[in-house]
Design a protein around this nucleic acid. Structure first.
Length: 264
DNA sequence: ATGACTTGTAATACAAGA
């Protein structure tokens, strides 16, 4: 019995319904975690997604920005969510699957244009968010429970997580201070980076290609911003990771592609 | 090159993404 869980920053769930249907037709993950749904709960296309087989849904949306959802073919338990950094933006949702696996879906703040905590409040928010996640992981002792943490974490921590390390070192998303914050979070939960468990760190691995750079995908000017982590109790269940790159070449794509985890 | 494109909101311009 395997369990497949996908994460995808869709950059507006309403604009991406056709792509989501195409992805589900190709991969049919048991659970589909979305970020940046950009819609109020009451306007979420719940019926269309039920039609794709996702009868069980936890939606945490807001108007215009952010928003996450967990869609599942199997029953969900323990639906939950919390606020981070004393804001009521919708960046997190969690559930329990098959009675025991905890799943946390995150959309970490992007951090604004300038990697300067003092000059740019959005960058400060991003670092505070990552610190709060690490505190949570430690305080809740999540390392001892079977738990999957995934989503758009908006940090590409390794040199091979961006298309040009030297050139992008001072760009938000790839600065050393962000990578350090992410490393502290990884350590706080004793997490295994499932993507790098299957793809060696020497090998470039990307999940996002920007819209602005013409032909960014064709030239593979990518970043690894989307992550899938598991705690040690799930280490023995890791079967595969698939970065579904082809979704970036479809019409009207999201700038992120889905990543699929298989547990068995 | 502090830009390029895409989205939502609101009203044809702006904020936000990263």
């Amino acid at each position: 019995m395997t369990l497949t869980i996908a994460t995808w920053n869709v950059n507006s769930v309403r604009q991406r319904l056709d792509n989501i249907a195409r992805f589900v037709e190709a991969q049919a993950p048991d659970v589909l975690c979305l970020q940046e749904i950009k819609v109020r709960d009451e306007d979420f296309p719940a019926e269309a997604l039920r039609g794709l087989g996702y009868e069980h849904q936890l939606v945490r949306g807001e108007k215009g920005y952010n928003g996450v959802a967990i869609l599942s073919r199997r029953p969900l338990a323990g639906q939950n969510a919390r606020s981070w950094c004393d804001k009521d933006d919708r960046r997190h949702a969690s559930v329990r699957l098959d009675g025991e696996i905890e799943l946390h879906n995150f959309y970490v703040p992007s951090g604004g244009p300038k990697p300067d905590r003092d000059a740019n409040p959005k960058f400060d928010h991003k670092l505070s968010f990552l610190t709060e996640m690490a505190d949570w992981a430690r305080e809740e002792a999540i390392a001892d429970r079977p738990l999957v943490l995934l989503g758009d974490l908006n940090v590409a921590p390794l040199e091979t997580d961006v298309w040009n390390h030297k050139r992008l070192l001072r760009n938000v998303g790839h600065t050393p201070v962000e990578s350090e914050h992410m490393a502290r979070l990884l350590e706080a939960g004793s997490f295994i980076d499932a993507e790098r468990h299957f793809v060696p760190p020497e090998e470039p691995l990307f999940t996002w290609w920007g819209y602005r750079f013409a032909e960014s995908f064709q030239r593979d000017y990518g970043w690894r911003l989307d992550h899938v982590w598991v705690t040690p109790p799930l280490a023995g269940a890791l079967r595969s990771i698939t970065v579904f790159r082809e979704a970036r070449s479809w019409p009207q794509p999201s700038d992120h592609v889905p990543v699929i985890l298989t547990l068995g």
